[in-house]
Amino acid sequence: MHRNLPQNKEALLKSYTTRLKEDIKSMLENFEEIIRLAKGERGESESQLNRMTQIEQDTFEMQVRAANIVRAGESLMKLVSDIKQYLILNDFPSVNEAITQNSKLFRTKQQECDQKLMSLRDDIAADLYDLEDEYFTSIYK
C-alpha cells in the first residue's frame, strides 16, 4: 500500500476492501433482520394484511435474506480468489525471484551440459584420431 501504485491499481485494491466490508455488512444485516423477524418485533397491529399472508411474507423474506447471506459468503470466496489472483499476477518480487532461480538453474545446467559435451568431444576427438589412423593404415578401406 505504501508503494506508488498506479491509480487504477489503487482503485482496485480499494474496491476489494469495500467489497469485503459490504459483504460482511450484508451478512450481518441480513442475519439481524432474520432474528428480528423471528422475534416478531414488527408491529402486527398496523399491518393491513391477513395473518397468514403476513406469515407467508415473513417466510419468504427470511428465505431471501438467508439466500443473501449465502450470496455474501460466496462473494467473499470470490473475493478471496480475486485477491489471490491479483497477488499472483502482480507480485513482481516473487516473479523476479522465480526468474532468477530459473536462470540460475538453467545456467548451471548449461554449464554442466557444456562440460559434458566438451569432455565427450575431447574423448571422441582422441578416439577419432586413433580410429582414423587405424582406418587409413589398414588395407580395408
Binding site: 416478531g40 417466510t59 428465505q63 438467508a66 447471506i69 449465502v70
Partner: peptide, 13 residues
C-alpha cells in the same frame, strides 16, 4: 409460521 420460516431460511443457509 415463524418456525417454518426459520426452518426454510436455515435450509437455504
Amino acid at each position: 409460521g415463524r418456525k417454518k420460516a426459520l426452518g426454510a431460511a436455515a435450509a437455504v443457509l
